[in-house]
Amino acid sequence: MSKLTWRRGGHTAPVAKPEPVERGASKAEMLGRLRDALADNRPPRAEVDRSYRRERDAGTDLVGRFAERVADYRARVLRADSSDLVETAAALLREAGVRRLVVPPGERLAWLAATGVELVYDDPPLTVTQLDAAEGVATECAVAVAETGTIVLDGGPDQGRRALSLLPDYHLCVVRAEQLVGTVPEAVARLDPYRPQTWISGPSATSDIELDRVEGVHGPRRLHVLLLA
């Protein structure tokens, strides 16, 4: 049924009530047409053969593969361990020329203050204008995929809402070894479909001009990945 429920959000604009009765008829008619279309010649039941690779090949160096694939997108990747984490992050931020960094609410990324940058917490939520004016943002991620060089954000406390990693022109993403998986199927299995997700593979890019890839359109034009392994 097509009930238009935009009143629910208490939106400011005056809301006109469209006529939902006729639209209910549309649903019935569409489903009827589809059933008719399938009535005489329903295709045979097709079992989905999932014998494609669901896990990485044994012996893959996940960390190395991930670093290589991220770099293929012309994103910058640096590896660090707990002993040189702050130092490495500081080097990346210096290279990016970023002095103030938006971070999600909570303490997960508080250690970044030790690099000397000023941290701006998204708490209370920043306006889009503030975010747009921000020099950069730092987040962690939910999962990272080695084979495709992809990081996945799902709005967890170490990542914040989607707009954070979108409007600032620089994104520093901290990836921990335990977040790394080999393949796309492994990533899908780990993720919760009910959380809003953003899969990020390199900086914003376009192939719209002569089908040549150009990095940098609307999303962050520079992506730095700090790989903690």
């Binding site: 495709t148 989607r162 479909p193 959380r195 809003p196 997700q197 953003t198 914003s204 890019a205 999303g219």
Partner: peptide, 17 residues
């Protein structure tokens, strides 16, 4: 290997989007 951005959402989420 993967496009730069893939977005997935399920209905609406409080405080995000």
């Amino acid at each position: 290997r993967m496009n730069p951005y893939t977005s997935m959402w399920t209905g609406v989420t409080d405080g995000d989007g």
